[in-house]
Structure formats: C-alpha cells, structure tokens
C-alpha cells in the first residue's frame, strides 16, 4: 500500500501478495467460493514450503490454557464473533460454518493450528482474513500481558435475527462463567447489526460478574457526529474504537492497481484519484484489533 493509507491499515506495513482470479463462466457461486478458499490455502502452503527448512527467527512457547493461573492472575477469555451469512460471508471452523449453531469453546492454541479459515470477503475495512484468525491480535496481546492468564477462546456465530443474537450471547456468557474466567475481550466481524453481537455479550458477561471489553469499529457518519454504535451496551461501557468507518480519505492517483480495474462503489477506474470512506481500505478498522487506528472527539 502507498500513502496516505499507509498507517491507516496495518497492511501498509506488510508485504502483500494480491491474487486475482476469474471464475469459469458456467461455475456456480458456491463452487467459486470453495475453489477460491481452497486455492488460497494451497497458495499459503506453497509459500510456507519455502520456509520449512529455514531456521526460525523466533520461537514462542504457548502456555496451556487449561493450566491454573500462575499467582492467581485474572483468567481471561477472548470471545470472537465470526460472520455467518452464507456464501462469501461465512467463516469456517474446522471446515464448518457456525451458522445456526451456538458458541463454541476452543483452546486459543487451536487458532495457531489453523482451526479458523475465512470465507468472508465483504466489508474490506471490517474483514478478518485467515491470517488474522491464525495470529489473532487480541489473543497475542493477552498472551503478552504478564498480568493476565489467557484461559479460553470462545467462537460465536453472528446470527442475523435478534432472538438468536440474544440466545448466542447468553450462552457465550454462560460458557465463560463455566470455565471460570474473570474477564473477557470481545471482537466481531462486519458492520451494523454485528455491533449487537458484541454489546449484548458485554451485557450478559457483566451480569455474570465477568468484566467485559468490546473492540468495535464506529459508524459515526461522514463528519463523525453520528451515533458511533448501532446497539450500545447497557451494563458496561469499556470499549476500544478501531476508527470511524465513514470518515473520508482521498487516495491519490496511482500508476497500477491490483485486484481489479474498477472501484465498484464509485464505478471509476481504480488508478484515478478517489475520495472514499475508510470503510473500503482493507483491514483499516480491523475488528480483531490489528491496527492502530482509533477515533476521538477533537477537543
């Protein structure tokens, strides 16, 4: 990525490989999605092969989450909501969608083994690609913290109807209580209604006496004066902002654009100077907390 989005998306600090593909004209979208996901995984394996024989730069030893918390440190769960809206908007846990299901308890170390693979391609700024599930920034930050013990990972579907949101939220909070955590950090994927999947869980967790922190992008409108959240929490207020989705930025004209020739939102060539919402910059508002963007009132 080139300026000015450099610094706005953590992808501006990584080497990125852009894969372009053309579906066969007669292919069903279901097949296209599966082929795309498998193809990307094959590519990842191919790239990893090159590193297989190389001496590692660093070795990190992961603690067993089931172990007793050393020195009685607070036990923390990371609760990660994953999008479950069907084709091209789904995330796979051991190859299965959580759609229609309940919250699922995993060892956070299973993320490192690749338990979660994204098949969700919507909402560029709010997307959690497979890489970020495997290197989950919140899981990593809790592991790094000497004052907390990472005890559990809870993966939850993001149902689209209210009753199911309430059920999954209550159930996730009970799972957290059942494994005896003192606190939880919650993340989501996607915009709008997915706010409720975080804030309802914050409420249910706080009711169980479990301190809850939500990681949330804001949708505060173009000028930053609209309400930041679709559904605010009612029992706790501890939230981290990953930035305002609606704020505009101007991307300068560039010589070459990867991943497509047109910007669909504006129906204009991708190489032109474009005024766009931050919402279109990949991972800029990373709901898994990868980026450094935040939002605050200018006082």
């Amino acid at each position: 990525m080139a300026p000015p989005e450099a610094g706005r998306s953590p992808l501006s600090e990584t080497h990125n490989l852009v894969v372009e593909f053309d579906p066969a004209p007669d292919a069903e979208w279901e097949e296209v999605e599966a082929a795309l996901r498998r193809g990307l995984l094959h590519l990842a394996v191919h790239l990893a092969d090159a590193a297989l024989e190389v001496e590692p730069d660093a070795i990190e030893e992961l603690t067993d989450p089931a172990a007793q918390s050393p020195d009685g440190l607070p036990r923390v769960a990371v609760v990660t909501n994953i999008q479950t809206q069907g084709r091209f908007k789904d995330v796979f846990v051991y190859g299965r969608s959580l759609s229609g299901g309940l919250a699922t308890l995993l060892s956070p170390n299973e993320l490192d083994d690749g338990a979660v693979v994204s098949g969700q391609y919507g909402h560029p700024a709010l997307r959690n690609p497979t890489l970020l599930h495997q290197t989950h920034p919140v899981v990593a930050a809790v592991r790094e913290c000497q004052d907390l013990h990472l005890a559990a990972l809870v993966l939850c579907p993001e149902p689209v109807d209210q009753n199911a949101k309430e059920l999954v939220s209550a159930h996730a909070a009970r799972l957290c209580a059942a494994v005896g955590v003192d606190a939880a950090i919650l993340t989501k994927e996607g915009g709008g209604n997915a706010d409720a999947d975080v804030t309802l869980k914050m409420d249910r967790l706080e009711e169980q006496g479990i301190a809850a922190v939500g990681v949330l992008p804001e949708m505060a409108g173009r000028d930053g004066t609209g309400p930041s959240l679709v559904v605010p929490p009612t029992k706790g207020v501890a939230m981290v902002s990953t930035g305002n989705y609606d704020e505009r930025l101007t991307l300068p004209a560039c010589e070459r654009a990867l991943g497509g020739d047109q910007v669909a939102l504006l129906d204009r060539p991708a190489t032109e100077e474009l005024e766009l919402p931050v919402a279109v910059v990949l991972c800029a508002l990373s709901p898994l907390g990868w980026g450094r963007l935040t939002c605050h009132e200018e006082v």
Partner: peptide, 19 residues
C-alpha cells in the same frame, strides 16, 4: 466531531490495557 487518529498502540493492546 469524532476523527480518526493513529494511536501509539494497536487496538488489541489498548483492549488489554482497558481490561
């Protein structure tokens, strides 16, 4: 108005600090 700013730490690190 609320405006986007680049913070010193990632949102994940800030979430831990807030917790």
């Amino acid at each position: 108005p609320r405006r986007n700013r680049v913070a010193d730490h990632s949102a994940a690190q800030r979430a831990v600090a807030l917790l």
